[in-house]
Design a protein around this nucleic acid. Sequence first.
DNA 1: TCATTTCCTCAAAGCGCTTTGGCTAGCCAC
DNA 2: GTGGCTAGCCAAAGCGCTTTGAGGAAATGA
Lengths: 341, 341
Amino acid sequence: MNLKQLSQMLGLSQTTVSRALNGYPEVNRETRERVLKAVQETGYRPNKAAQRLATGKAGSIGLVMPTAPGNPTDLHFGEFLTGLGEEALRHDFHFVVTPADPNDEVGALKRLAVSGNVDALFVNYMRGHDPRLDMLKSLSMPFLVHGRSIGSEPDYPFLDIDNEAAFYDATKLLLQLGHRRFALLNGPMYLDFAIRRKNGVDAALAERGLALDEACISHTAMTDEQGLLVMERILQLDKRPTAILCSSTVLALGAVRAINQAKLKLGEDISLIAHDDVLTLLKPENFTVPLTTTRSSLRAAGMRIAERLIAGIKQTETFPEQELWKTELIVRASTGVAPAD
Amino acid sequence: MNLKQLSQMLGLSQTTVSRALNGYPEVNRETRERVLKAVQETGYRPNKAAQRLATGKAGSIGLVMPTAPGNPTDLHFGEFLTGLGEEALRHDFHFVVTPADPNDEVGALKRLAVSGNVDALFVNYMRGHDPRLDMLKSLSMPFLVHGRSIGSEPDYPFLDIDNEAAFYDATKLLLQLGHRRFALLNGPMYLDFAIRRKNGVDAALAERGLALDEACISHTAMTDEQGLLVMERILQLDKRPTAILCSSTVLALGAVRAINQAKLKLGEDISLIAHDDVLTLLKPENFTVPLTTTRSSLRAAGMRIAERLIAGIKQTETFPEQELWKTELIVRASTGVAPAD
DNA sequence: TCATTTCCTCAAAGCGCTTTGGCTAGCCAC
DNA sequence: GTGGCTAGCCAAAGCGCTTTGAGGAAATGA
């Protein structure tokens, strides 16, 4: 069943039927109702490809899913996608997911853009000096960045959380509790958020004339295995740190296991603050010793990003181009006064 | 830059250029090379919407992402998607993800199918008597089912693991170790795999004249929170079970926490076998007491499904229509001889 | 030599929709 | 009665591609 058949059935022109369906004003109310009724009965659905060809609009958001063979599934990606999906659903949008090798993200993005399959692009896992930015800007297609790219002119639309402030505040709290030796379990060094979080820690420590020991910084994938490995190593240092900052509750999962295995008491012998993306699977309050965290919901970010992108496509509303969300510092039992030396 | 412009530039007709690009034999080699070179230089890319409209092929697989507001992010879904993506990447396919309320999966699927956005459909989270099957069969579009639907005629293409055998074998092992009181932490009751797993347990127990106590069966979402809650409840039963079967390592995560909190020793006081989907985040060998599991990689299933679907679309190869994968029973430290009563 | 075949190329139709630019009929004002 | 509006509808063009059916030129056969 297509437009032609439907309009013949109704004894109307394609024009009128199309207009009736798309809410144009120059259609008689009675006629419109007749059309709508016929659509109900026949189950007619406009062919998206044709619609897209005619309008140039696809009703979809493109995103690149980084997925090298053997790459760990990213819990954070899933949580974020859920948020995106929730909002997209509300507007009858869908997304086109192109799997891509992380080393060819620029290429994958470009292919997606010129494919004509999407009306807007979205990128995340931003790096310092991210090469994708220039490409996006040259593209004349709405886009939105989750995160930022340190080292690039901040003249692009983004949604980010204030990573630097989050880790600055967390460090400050630990300093107030008397801690002097810190460790940072961070994400991959090239990622923007990791850089900013480290900057936050550095800034707070510098105010007290302290600095992170090189041996106490790790940049790894954010898996619990890495958390375990790194933490085991750190705990074997003499003059081991008493305060740990973790870039994710997933890393914290491994770190805490290492701490337990070393028979140390979290919140007494050693304090830990993790960043909490509010992953459904991994709630900091469910740890045996509930975790103190800096919190910002990844899913909420997903929803907001979908909202902004869709608005950008429809050109209905204008949102602030750049948003920086504050995180919350939530104190639970994993932080305590520094042990006497 | 479109076909028309390109062909004018080359002094050829659109037909010839199109044929040259799509590998038709009736184009002079020299001509073809000229065309290919021009494509390189101009960066011409065919408009997908037009291509799709003309051919009816979209180069994409449609799938419905179940996502009610507030729904937990599903770790299993992400792992599976990673597998799908890995394989799709290899064939330059992408997927169109429609987020949908779990209560309207049939509708969402139908919309996806008639939208003309996809050439093939994929469904998972199968239920008993799944209403989507009839719809899919009526659709004349390739589709593939991950799992099966108990109660429906098995006349559709699927890939499933042998859930019944997996849990039969696991139960049998525990019986051999002397266990007599069992509990099953299962997924939602309406899901096919949950039904089959329970059947497997029932069958093995029945052989010994045993049966599951109603109080020792749970059907919940597969989150660690539910695992914790259910396990806490079960541990308070008098005559509490000594053998636990878990439908997921995620459930096991919570269950093990409950066991630890009750100061019971896993593998001594109580034995546990979980099904392991080989989630990257949650390795059974990384539990403090490594978990005995029935194993089958969800990611591998995703890859295989993408492979079959794409082959179905291209009609290149024919794969077996129905595949049933065996799981592996891997014994680790969480299973031991039943404690004396 | 003419007829036939083969190789390469082309013009034009069509995919299913939106949108432009009329057109008609009815109404009002003068 | 004429001119000008407006409301409601339509025919046809066009989006960018693939594919059908045809045709011209060169090569082959009789």
